[in-house]
């Protein structure tokens, strides 16, 4: 009884949601977004690793390429009515494209509305991992970055040269 009484003076754990918002840590695993690289290019390269890692198989996409060889997803779909917010996709992603963010306010009356397409997922920012640009470290040539122009690369070999 005494203990119960004391609790009256403790800080309240219940907050007046939705008038009052909860503060979530940056690494909280909520709604999933697709981010952009520092040059505002789409980060996702359509490698399918997130889809493979997803234990409930709720990610599907199709990779495609622009005229200069840069890969990106033609469509990217997450069925949030299946997603368990485990964060495996984010862990699997080699480009930091897919990220879980601190937002859980996704309730819908119609389950169909929980199917998010790329237009619903892609944001205009880098999310939690600023600075990384996969194409700057990959060997693939894309528009604006030819062979040998990535970080830590020699210029392309001249096959016809006899110099040692």
């Amino acid at each position: 009884m005494w203990l119960t009484f004391l609790h009256m003076f403790h800080k309240r754990a219940t907050i007046q949601y939705p008038e009052e918002k909860i503060k979530l840590p940056a690494r909280w695993r909520g709604r999933i977004v697709l981010t952009r690289d520092p040059d505002m290019g789409e980060r996702c390269v359509g490698c399918y690793l997130c889809a493979a890692a997803c234990p409930v198989d709720c990610i599907s996409l199709q990779a495609t390429e622009d005229e200069n060889g840069r890969r990106y997803p033609e469509f990217f779909r997450i069925n949030f009515s299946r997603c368990i917010f485990c964060g495996y996709c984010e862990e699997a992603c080699p480009t930091y494209a897919i990220q879980l963010i601190p937002d859980f306010e996704m309730g819908e009356y119609d389950r169909q509305n929980l199917v998010y397409e790329k237009k619903d997922l892609l944001i205009d920012g880098q999310g939690k991992y600023p600075g990384y640009n996969y194409y700057k470290v990959a060997g693939l040539a894309i528009g604006g970055k030819d062979k040998g122009e990535a970080e830590n690369e020699e210029p392309p070999i001249d096959v016809k040269s006899l110099l040692p």
Partner: peptide, 16 residues
């Protein structure tokens, strides 16, 4: 066994 996307690939048509 690694096949992906089965709960999502047709979700645009019908989520069930």
């Amino acid at each position: 066994h690694r096949y992906s996307g089965r709960t999502s690939m047709l979700a645009n048509i019908n989520v069930s």
